[in-house]
Simulated assay, not measured.
Amino acid sequence: MALLHRAELRPSKLDLLAAWLPGRPWFAGTPGAEVTRVATFRFDDPAGEVGIETMLVRVGDGPVLQVPLTYRGAPLAGADRWLVGTTDHSALGPRWVYDACGDPVYAPALAAAVLADAGQAEEYFEVDGRREVRAPNMTLAGTRTGALPALGAVDEVVDGDPTLIRAGDVELALVRRPAPADAPAPARLTGAWAGQADPVLLAYAR
Rank of each mutant, 00 (worst) to 15 (best):
N137C: 13
F27C: 09
Y204N: 06
P149N: 14
W193S: 09
L110A: 10
G60V: 08
L151I: 13
V170M: 08
E53T: 13
A121E: 06
V154R: 11
A150Q: 14
P162Y: 08
V170S: 02
R131I: 14
W193M: 09
P149V: 14
R58A: 05
A77Y: 01
T30S: 12
L56Y: 04
P68C: 06
A18E: 04
D80R: 10
A116H: 06
H5E: 14
A181Q: 13
Q66M: 10
N137G: 15
G48C: 03
L14V: 12
W96I: 04
N137H: 11
R37N: 04
T87E: 09
L174Y: 03
D99M: 03
F41S: 04
P22A: 05
R10I: 05
F43V: 01
F27D: 06
P94I: 08
A118V: 04
A28W: 00
A197C: 00
A192I: 08
W20P: 00
A109L: 05
Y71R: 02
T40E: 15
P11Q: 03
R188T: 14
V67N: 01
A47F: 08
V105Y: 01
L172P: 01
E53C: 07
L148I: 12
T70N: 03
G195K: 07
D99I: 02
R24K: 14
A2R: 12
L76D: 08
V175E: 04
V64D: 04
A197T: 13
R37H: 15
V170T: 15
G51A: 10
D159V: 15
P149M: 14
P186V: 09
T54C: 12
A116G: 12
Q66L: 11
A107H: 09
L83V: 10
G168Y: 11
A7D: 09
L21M: 06
V84I: 15
A192L: 06
